[in-house]
Nucleic acid binder design. Sequence first.
DNA 1: CATAAATATCATATGATCATGGGGAAATCA
DNA 2: TGATTTCCCCATGATCATATGATATTTATG
Lengths: 141, 141
Amino acid sequence: MLSKTAQYALRAVIYLAGGSGAPVPAAEVAAGLEVPPNYLSKILHTLSRAGVVESERGPGGGYRLARPADRIPIADVVGEFEPLAPGGGCLLGFASCPGEHPCPAHERWQRVSEPIAAFFRETMVSELLESSGAVAPTVHA
Amino acid sequence: MLSKTAQYALRAVIYLAGGSGAPVPAAEVAAGLEVPPNYLSKILHTLSRAGVVESERGPGGGYRLARPADRIPIADVVGEFEPLAPGGGCLLGFASCPGEHPCPAHERWQRVSEPIAAFFRETMVSELLESSGAVAPTVHA
DNA sequence: CATAAATATCATATGATCATGGGGAAATCA
DNA sequence: TGATTTCCCCATGATCATATGATATTTATG
């Protein structure tokens, strides 16, 4: 459903949200999540450019959330790595589907896919916190 | 949303459903859909093994639907090329999510993702037929 | 200034998906 | 039988997402 990259990103943000707020080195996040360090580093960098996390360099530095966890919709995290196209996509891959003759599936598909988009928009990172299966996970789907 | 392969498959089945019922050569379907012939051939073969379409060889042969279009859920078509995981997947990629400590997202996610699965199960190929002149230059007067 | 800690970036390997090409094998008909 | 039409199958390349490795750059501190 979600790419591994997006999953790693989500879990990394959740990891940061579960901490004290002090900068956490990427290596520590990677170790906690059991994810390749270099790969996670790249992901965190992307999230940094996206304004979801902030980075601080040098000793004592690391990554921290750029905003409180209850103000970060998971769409902001996932959207950096997946299309997350809200209503744009046609099931059949036609670019000009919603033109003169939208395929009959179009309306039904949107009626069903819109809640998905809403879920990503309205679910905040903070809501994924408790139950901490997120911090010390049993990985490998 | 759907891979190109799955989209090609769907469109091919729709193309067949729009015809008279007589076998249609794969080359014709490929031409009608503007899809690489050999690639589509492979896709049709997969659908044939899956029991969605039937093939007939020799002159006058080709592919035709194995059942009436209103009895072919699009899940049967798409499912051959995509996981279509029916609610089994955890958003965060945790294998043991629905165990002792399902992540809080889990329930909300399933509540939102189940309709997607239902959409694929309950939408029949026949419902994607009319309009969509982009798919087939359907002859029906 | 020198050193170590940390991010930032470049380069490359891997696997899946996407796409193409060509050589059969089976069925039909003359 | 022989020729045509069509499916069937295998091999190859292109492209992208995924993943890893090595190096450069920035920053704090002694």
